[in-house]
Amino acid sequence: MASVEHSDGQSLSGGEGVRRRDFINIAAVSFAGVGAVVVALPLIDQMNPSADVLALASTEVDLSAIQPGQAIKTTFRSQPLFVRQLTPAEIAEADKVDPSTLRDPQTLEERTVDGKKQWLITMGVCTHLGCVPLGAGEGENRGEFGGYFCPCHGSSYDTAARIRKGPAPKNLEVPKFSFTSDTAILVG
């Protein structure tokens, strides 16, 4: 550009300091830049979950076989789901705790459906780094608070699946669900 200005500065300049060529240069580069961004969008977006992964699946769970104190593991959107019937002692233990002392303050009522406080339905995904906590299976370690225990980094959840100890920041997530009958729920 310097050479153009030097050889023929007058005829190319549209005004003082701004030349037609500068305008063309900026316009062309800007247009290419916008084009590059537009092309980048699908290149990035293709990594997001595809339609088949996103296709929302709701899961129906039959509760009739789950005895108080028992829990089952099932899957919801390809992730583990814990369905647990609490014993009266476990409910009492969860109610005894003052929510304001918790890391993620919630009461058992807030985490269950009205009148069906014994049914604790949570994702089986530790809120730390996504491991499956122990405690739903028969004879598994339930940790020092009697709920769930994540073996990866030692997070302990209580009988309302609230985080009590260890690195996890949140309580186990309660997915959206509703009772379709007294002994069945629909998750999702």
């Binding site: 899957t75 992730q79 491991c131 499956v132």
Partner: peptide, 9 residues
Amino acid sequence: NPLSTPAHI
């Protein structure tokens, strides 16, 4: 196995 975490990752 997405449903079972090894005891010690």
